[in-house]
Simulated assay, not measured.
Amino acid sequence: MAQRDDHSHEERRSEEAAGWVARLQSSDATAADREGFAAWCARNPKNAEAYQDLSSLWGELKEAPVPKDRLRKLRAARRARRAATLGILLLAVTGLGVSQTGWVERLQADHSTGVGEVRSVALPDGSRAVLNTDTALRLRFDGSRRQVELLRGEAYFEVAPMPARPFVAVGETLEATALGTRFAMQLSQGGRGPEVAVEEGRVAVRSREAQVELKAGDEATLGSDGRLILSRPDVAEQVAWKDGKLVFSDRPLAEVLATLGRYRRGSILVLDERAARQRISGIFDVANTDEALATLEASLPVSVTRLTGLMVIVRSR
Protein backbone atom coordinates (compact mmCIF):
# COMPACT_ATOMS: atom_id res chain seq x y z
CA MET A 1 0.00 0.00 0.00
CA ALA A 2 2.86 2.38 0.84
CA GLN A 3 4.39 1.73 -2.58
CA ARG A 4 1.09 2.52 -4.30
CA ASP A 5 0.74 5.76 -2.30
CA ASP A 6 4.29 6.76 -3.26
CA HIS A 7 3.46 6.14 -6.93
CA SER A 8 0.31 8.27 -6.61
CA HIS A 9 2.32 11.12 -5.08
CA GLU A 10 4.90 10.94 -7.85
CA GLU A 11 2.16 10.92 -10.50
CA ARG A 12 0.57 14.00 -8.94
CA ARG A 13 3.97 15.71 -8.72
CA SER A 14 4.60 15.00 -12.43
CA GLU A 15 1.19 16.44 -13.34
CA GLU A 16 1.85 19.58 -11.33
CA ALA A 17 5.32 19.94 -12.86
CA ALA A 18 3.86 19.54 -16.35
CA GLY A 19 1.34 22.25 -15.57
CA TRP A 20 4.12 24.58 -14.45
CA VAL A 21 6.19 23.89 -17.60
CA ALA A 22 3.21 24.69 -19.82
CA ARG A 23 2.27 27.75 -17.79
CA LEU A 24 5.72 29.32 -17.46
CA GLN A 25 6.50 28.73 -21.15
CA SER A 26 3.30 30.58 -22.04
CA SER A 27 3.51 34.18 -23.23
CA ASP A 28 0.87 35.26 -20.70
CA ALA A 29 2.71 33.95 -17.62
CA THR A 30 2.45 36.53 -14.83
CA ALA A 31 4.54 37.54 -11.83
CA ALA A 32 1.94 35.78 -9.65
CA ASP A 33 2.53 32.59 -11.66
CA ARG A 34 6.27 32.80 -11.04
CA GLU A 35 5.73 33.44 -7.33
CA GLY A 36 3.39 30.46 -7.13
CA PHE A 37 5.96 28.32 -8.91
CA ALA A 38 8.69 29.38 -6.48
CA ALA A 39 6.45 28.48 -3.52
CA TRP A 40 5.67 25.09 -5.08
CA CYS A 41 9.39 24.34 -5.53
CA ALA A 42 10.12 25.39 -1.96
CA ARG A 43 7.60 22.91 -0.53
CA ASN A 44 9.63 19.88 -1.61
CA PRO A 45 13.03 19.52 -3.35
CA LYS A 46 11.53 16.77 -5.53
CA ASN A 47 9.17 19.34 -7.05
CA ALA A 48 12.06 21.28 -8.60
CA GLU A 49 13.63 18.04 -9.84
CA ALA A 50 10.38 17.00 -11.55
CA TYR A 51 10.12 20.42 -13.16
CA GLN A 52 13.67 20.25 -14.52
CA ASP A 53 13.06 16.80 -15.99
CA LEU A 54 9.88 17.87 -17.79
CA SER A 55 11.37 21.20 -18.84
CA SER A 56 14.11 19.29 -20.65
CA LEU A 57 11.51 17.09 -22.36
CA TRP A 58 9.64 20.22 -23.38
CA GLY A 59 12.67 21.23 -25.45
CA GLU A 60 12.45 17.92 -27.29
CA LEU A 61 8.71 18.02 -27.93
CA LYS A 62 7.63 21.62 -28.35
CA GLU A 63 8.34 21.72 -32.10
CA ALA A 64 6.55 18.45 -32.82
CA PRO A 65 3.21 18.77 -34.67
CA VAL A 66 0.04 17.63 -32.92
CA PRO A 67 -0.88 14.85 -32.61
CA LYS A 68 0.91 12.61 -35.11
CA ASP A 69 4.57 13.12 -34.21
CA ARG A 70 3.87 13.21 -30.50
CA LEU A 71 1.96 9.96 -30.65
CA ARG A 72 4.87 8.43 -32.57
CA LYS A 73 7.21 9.50 -29.77
CA LEU A 74 4.89 7.86 -27.27
CA ARG A 75 4.83 4.62 -29.23
CA ALA A 76 8.61 4.65 -29.52
CA ALA A 77 9.10 5.01 -25.76
CA ARG A 78 10.37 1.71 -24.40
CA ARG A 79 10.33 2.41 -20.71
CA ALA A 80 6.95 2.70 -19.03
CA ARG A 81 8.07 5.49 -16.73
CA ARG A 82 9.41 7.65 -19.55
CA ALA A 83 6.35 6.93 -21.68
CA ALA A 84 4.09 8.00 -18.82
CA THR A 85 6.14 11.17 -18.32
CA LEU A 86 5.91 12.04 -22.02
CA GLY A 87 2.16 11.46 -21.86
CA ILE A 88 1.87 13.85 -18.93
CA LEU A 89 3.83 16.51 -20.79
CA LEU A 90 1.75 16.00 -23.92
CA LEU A 91 -1.37 16.73 -21.90
CA ALA A 92 0.20 19.87 -20.48
CA VAL A 93 1.26 21.10 -23.93
CA THR A 94 -2.28 20.65 -25.28
CA GLY A 95 -3.80 22.36 -22.25
CA LEU A 96 -5.26 19.21 -20.70
CA GLY A 97 -2.62 18.79 -18.03
CA VAL A 98 -3.31 22.24 -16.65
CA SER A 99 -7.06 21.77 -16.74
CA GLN A 100 -6.91 18.55 -14.74
CA THR A 101 -4.42 19.73 -12.14
CA GLY A 102 -6.56 22.37 -10.39
CA TRP A 103 -4.07 22.85 -7.56
CA VAL A 104 -4.76 26.60 -7.29
CA GLU A 105 -8.47 26.06 -6.72
CA ARG A 106 -7.81 23.25 -4.24
CA LEU A 107 -5.55 25.52 -2.19
CA GLN A 108 -8.38 28.06 -1.99
CA ALA A 109 -11.09 25.50 -1.21
CA ASP A 110 -12.54 24.20 2.04
CA HIS A 111 -13.50 20.93 0.35
CA SER A 112 -12.19 19.35 -2.86
CA THR A 113 -12.05 16.08 -4.77
CA GLY A 114 -9.42 14.58 -7.03
CA VAL A 115 -9.97 13.25 -10.54
CA GLY A 116 -12.33 10.26 -10.34
CA GLU A 117 -13.42 11.00 -6.76
CA VAL A 118 -17.03 11.72 -5.71
CA ARG A 119 -17.53 12.74 -2.09
CA SER A 120 -20.35 13.92 0.17
CA VAL A 121 -19.65 16.62 2.78
CA ALA A 122 -21.83 17.96 5.58
CA LEU A 123 -22.15 21.75 5.61
CA PRO A 124 -22.29 23.83 8.83
CA ASP A 125 -26.04 24.56 8.49
CA GLY A 126 -27.08 20.91 8.13
CA SER A 127 -27.16 21.02 4.34
CA ARG A 128 -25.21 18.50 2.30
CA ALA A 129 -22.97 18.97 -0.73
CA VAL A 130 -21.84 16.17 -3.02
CA LEU A 131 -18.69 17.06 -4.95
CA ASN A 132 -18.21 15.51 -8.36
CA THR A 133 -14.86 14.58 -9.84
CA ASP A 134 -12.12 17.25 -9.81
CA THR A 135 -14.17 19.79 -7.87
CA ALA A 136 -13.29 22.55 -5.41
CA LEU A 137 -15.76 24.27 -3.08
CA ARG A 138 -15.25 27.24 -0.76
CA LEU A 139 -17.63 28.03 2.13
CA ARG A 140 -18.68 31.49 3.33
CA PHE A 141 -21.03 30.92 6.26
CA ASP A 142 -21.80 33.50 8.97
CA GLY A 143 -24.76 34.67 11.03
CA SER A 144 -26.60 36.20 8.10
CA ARG A 145 -25.62 34.21 5.03
CA ARG A 146 -24.96 30.72 3.73
CA GLN A 147 -22.82 30.98 0.64
CA VAL A 148 -20.84 28.34 -1.21
CA GLU A 149 -18.48 29.21 -4.04
CA LEU A 150 -17.88 26.60 -6.71
CA LEU A 151 -14.28 27.20 -7.74
CA ARG A 152 -13.98 24.19 -10.00
CA GLY A 153 -16.06 21.29 -11.31
CA GLU A 154 -19.59 20.39 -10.28
CA ALA A 155 -21.52 20.01 -7.03
CA TYR A 156 -24.97 18.86 -5.94
CA PHE A 157 -26.66 20.51 -2.96
CA GLU A 158 -29.37 19.30 -0.58
CA VAL A 159 -30.32 22.51 1.16
CA ALA A 160 -31.63 22.65 4.74
CA PRO A 161 -34.60 25.09 4.91
CA MET A 162 -33.64 28.31 6.68
CA PRO A 163 -35.62 31.26 5.23
CA ALA A 164 -33.84 33.89 7.33
CA ARG A 165 -30.47 32.83 5.89
CA PRO A 166 -30.68 32.26 2.12
CA PHE A 167 -28.46 29.55 0.67
CA VAL A 168 -26.54 30.97 -2.29
CA ALA A 169 -24.24 29.07 -4.65
CA VAL A 170 -21.85 31.18 -6.72
CA GLY A 171 -19.92 29.92 -9.73
CA GLU A 172 -18.21 31.83 -12.54
CA THR A 173 -20.89 34.22 -13.82
CA LEU A 174 -23.94 32.49 -12.27
CA GLU A 175 -25.51 32.84 -8.85
CA ALA A 176 -28.18 30.42 -7.60
CA THR A 177 -30.34 31.14 -4.55
CA ALA A 178 -32.07 28.02 -3.22
CA LEU A 179 -35.61 28.23 -1.93
CA GLY A 180 -35.44 24.91 0.01
CA THR A 181 -34.35 22.47 -2.64
CA ARG A 182 -32.00 20.00 -4.29
CA PHE A 183 -30.01 21.27 -7.23
CA ALA A 184 -26.70 20.95 -9.06
CA MET A 185 -24.30 23.58 -10.35
CA GLN A 186 -21.62 22.93 -12.95
CA LEU A 187 -18.97 25.31 -14.25
CA SER A 188 -18.16 25.64 -17.96
CA GLN A 189 -17.35 22.25 -19.50
CA GLY A 190 -16.54 21.17 -23.04
CA GLY A 191 -17.56 24.43 -24.68
CA ARG A 192 -20.84 24.58 -22.77
CA GLY A 193 -21.42 27.46 -20.37
CA PRO A 194 -22.03 27.15 -16.61
CA GLU A 195 -25.38 25.67 -15.68
CA VAL A 196 -27.81 25.02 -12.83
CA ALA A 197 -30.21 22.04 -12.80
CA VAL A 198 -33.01 21.62 -10.23
CA GLU A 199 -34.08 18.19 -9.04
CA GLU A 200 -36.51 19.31 -6.34
CA GLY A 201 -37.97 22.64 -5.18
CA ARG A 202 -37.18 26.03 -6.70
CA VAL A 203 -33.98 27.98 -7.39
CA ALA A 204 -33.56 31.62 -8.43
CA VAL A 205 -30.71 31.86 -10.95
CA ARG A 206 -29.08 35.13 -11.86
CA SER A 207 -26.41 36.13 -14.35
CA ARG A 208 -25.10 39.59 -15.20
CA GLU A 209 -27.73 39.93 -17.90
CA ALA A 210 -30.77 38.01 -16.69
CA GLN A 211 -32.63 36.34 -13.84
CA VAL A 212 -35.01 33.39 -13.83
CA GLU A 213 -36.72 31.13 -11.30
CA LEU A 214 -36.36 27.40 -11.95
CA LYS A 215 -38.65 24.63 -10.73
CA ALA A 216 -38.02 20.88 -10.45
CA GLY A 217 -36.82 19.49 -13.79
CA ASP A 218 -35.60 22.83 -15.12
CA GLU A 219 -32.08 23.66 -16.20
CA ALA A 220 -30.55 27.04 -17.01
CA THR A 221 -27.36 27.31 -19.06
CA LEU A 222 -25.48 30.55 -19.64
CA GLY A 223 -25.17 31.16 -23.37
CA SER A 224 -22.23 32.84 -25.07
CA ASP A 225 -24.36 35.97 -25.50
CA GLY A 226 -25.04 36.22 -21.76
CA ARG A 227 -28.62 34.93 -21.97
CA LEU A 228 -29.93 32.16 -19.75
CA ILE A 229 -31.06 29.25 -21.93
CA LEU A 230 -33.81 27.15 -20.32
CA SER A 231 -34.37 23.45 -20.95
CA ARG A 232 -36.08 20.38 -19.45
CA PRO A 233 -33.51 17.55 -19.41
CA ASP A 234 -33.68 14.36 -17.37
CA VAL A 235 -32.15 15.92 -14.25
CA ALA A 236 -32.11 12.63 -12.32
CA GLU A 237 -30.02 11.14 -15.14
CA GLN A 238 -27.70 14.15 -15.17
CA VAL A 239 -26.98 13.99 -11.43
CA ALA A 240 -26.72 10.19 -11.18
CA TRP A 241 -22.98 10.73 -10.64
CA LYS A 242 -23.76 11.65 -7.00
CA ASP A 243 -24.68 7.98 -6.50
CA GLY A 244 -21.59 6.75 -8.33
CA LYS A 245 -23.25 6.14 -11.72
CA LEU A 246 -23.08 7.71 -15.15
CA VAL A 247 -26.31 7.29 -17.11
CA PHE A 248 -26.55 7.85 -20.88
CA SER A 249 -29.65 7.56 -23.07
CA ASP A 250 -28.95 7.48 -26.82
CA ARG A 251 -25.97 9.85 -26.57
CA PRO A 252 -23.18 10.22 -29.16
CA LEU A 253 -20.00 8.34 -28.26
CA ALA A 254 -17.96 11.55 -28.34
CA GLU A 255 -20.12 12.98 -25.54
CA VAL A 256 -19.95 9.75 -23.53
CA LEU A 257 -16.16 9.62 -23.82
CA ALA A 258 -15.85 13.28 -22.85
CA THR A 259 -17.80 12.53 -19.67
CA LEU A 260 -15.78 9.40 -18.91
CA GLY A 261 -12.64 11.46 -19.42
CA ARG A 262 -13.57 13.67 -16.49
CA TYR A 263 -13.24 10.67 -14.16
CA ARG A 264 -9.76 9.56 -15.18
CA ARG A 265 -6.37 11.17 -15.47
CA GLY A 266 -5.12 11.96 -18.93
CA SER A 267 -7.08 12.15 -22.16
CA ILE A 268 -9.39 10.11 -24.38
CA LEU A 269 -9.05 11.05 -28.07
CA VAL A 270 -11.55 10.07 -30.78
CA LEU A 271 -9.78 9.92 -34.15
CA ASP A 272 -12.69 9.86 -36.62
CA GLU A 273 -16.20 11.20 -37.00
CA ARG A 274 -17.71 7.78 -37.66
CA ALA A 275 -16.67 6.65 -34.19
CA ALA A 276 -17.65 9.96 -32.59
CA ARG A 277 -21.21 9.70 -33.97
CA GLN A 278 -21.95 6.19 -32.66
CA ARG A 279 -24.96 6.25 -30.31
CA ILE A 280 -24.83 4.67 -26.88
CA SER A 281 -27.16 4.00 -23.96
CA GLY A 282 -25.92 2.53 -20.73
CA ILE A 283 -25.06 2.89 -17.07
CA PHE A 284 -21.43 2.97 -16.00
CA ASP A 285 -19.59 3.09 -12.69
CA VAL A 286 -17.70 6.34 -12.12
CA ALA A 287 -15.03 4.38 -10.23
CA ASN A 288 -14.21 2.07 -13.15
CA THR A 289 -13.79 3.92 -16.43
CA ASP A 290 -11.55 1.15 -17.79
CA GLU A 291 -14.49 -1.25 -17.55
CA ALA A 292 -16.69 1.30 -19.30
CA LEU A 293 -14.17 1.59 -22.16
CA ALA A 294 -14.01 -2.20 -22.45
CA THR A 295 -17.82 -2.37 -22.62
CA LEU A 296 -17.94 0.28 -25.35
CA GLU A 297 -15.29 -1.55 -27.37
CA ALA A 298 -17.22 -4.83 -27.05
CA SER A 299 -20.59 -3.33 -28.03
CA LEU A 300 -19.62 -0.83 -30.76
CA PRO A 301 -17.56 -1.06 -33.97
CA VAL A 302 -14.66 0.82 -32.38
CA SER A 303 -11.22 -0.10 -31.09
CA VAL A 304 -9.69 1.29 -27.90
CA THR A 305 -5.91 1.63 -27.71
CA ARG A 306 -4.03 2.62 -24.55
CA LEU A 307 -0.76 4.34 -25.43
CA THR A 308 0.18 5.04 -21.82
CA GLY A 309 -1.69 5.20 -18.55
CA LEU A 310 -2.62 8.76 -19.54
CA MET A 311 -3.59 8.45 -23.20
CA VAL A 312 -6.44 6.45 -24.78
CA ILE A 313 -7.19 6.44 -28.51
CA VAL A 314 -10.63 5.46 -29.86
CA ARG A 315 -11.19 4.85 -33.58
CA SER A 316 -13.54 3.00 -35.92
CA ARG A 317 -12.71 -0.57 -36.86
Rank of each mutant, 00 (worst) to 15 (best):
R138L: 15
R138P: 05
L139N: 08
L139F: 10
L139G: 03
R140C: 09
R140L: 15
R140I: 13
F141Y: 13
F141H: 05
D142K: 02
D142T: 11
G143F: 07
G143C: 05
G143A: 15
S144D: 15
S144G: 13
S144Q: 15
R145Q: 14
R146H: 13
Q147E: 15
V148G: 03
V148Q: 02
V148D: 01
L150H: 05
L151Y: 00
L151T: 03
L151K: 00
L151R: 01
R152W: 08
R152T: 08
R152K: 15
R152L: 15
R152Q: 14
G153T: 09
G153E: 06
E154L: 04
E154N: 07
E154D: 14
A155S: 13
A155I: 02
Y156W: 11
F157Y: 11
F157W: 02
E158S: 11
E158F: 08
V159E: 02
V159H: 03
V159Q: 05
V159G: 00
A160M: 08
A160D: 03
A160G: 05
A160T: 14
P161K: 13
M162S: 14
M162W: 05
M162A: 14
M162F: 06
P163S: 02
P163K: 06
R165E: 10
R165H: 12
P166T: 08
F167E: 00
F167P: 00
F167I: 03
F167T: 03
V168D: 07
A169L: 10
A169N: 00
A169D: 06
A169Q: 03
A169K: 01
V170W: 07
V170A: 10
G171Y: 00
G171T: 00
